[in-house]
Amino acid sequence: MIIVKNLIKSFKDGQTETKVIKGIDLKVENGQFIAIMGRSGAGKSTLLYQMSLLDEPTSGEIIIDGKEAHTMTQDQKTQFRLLNCGYVFQDYALLPELTSLENVVLPLLMQKMDKKVAYAKAKEALEKIKLGHRLKNIPSQLSGGEQQRVSIARAIANHPKILFADEPTANLDNESSKIVMKFFLQLHKEGQTIIMVTHEEQYAKMAEKVIKIDDGKIVSIHSSTN
């Protein structure tokens, strides 16, 4: 479970301070599929970055499974992300010199997993997302949709507690977007907690709960009709 309490995030540029998140309270239960929506600059990605421990909030609390994020050191946060979080970025964020398989296996090896087991798991994750035939390809040899699927395979290979996705379909064509979303739904059915930022309503509707943000505040939370 993720609990967000009075979260504030502001950016300083010289004397000017811009508040992007203006006191958000939120609770995400295990196994939920949450979509965060809002117009550009509303603060939805910033909220995701704070919740996923990729960034430091200016104030407020984030508690994940009883662990208070503000008490963790950077190294502890890195370790926490490794063991508990999966990330899917808008621009895929794959390492260009690694093959699909190596991109997926890297976090598994970092978890002290046995090499054979790690490679088997990585292969399994790629096969699950229908990329079993692209194991040895580097990202530049893959289409945008395929790269995003590799990124998803990397995120889910070790069954993280929470999957964070930042505009996962923004750079994809309709067909690829549908494949990605279909896969998210399948993961959700398997019990995966997913927090996804999107500006595309049709995909937000696929989530269990849609949170709308505007000007750094939650303006509405409602369950999806799907």
Binding site: L54, R81, L82, Y87, F89, A93, L95, P107, M110, R154
Partner: peptide, 11 residues
């Protein structure tokens, strides 16, 4: 990205 996905800075 490496740090983001949990790769230790020392590595």
């Amino acid at each position: 990205i490496l740090k983001g996905i949990g790769i230790n800075g020392k590595a």
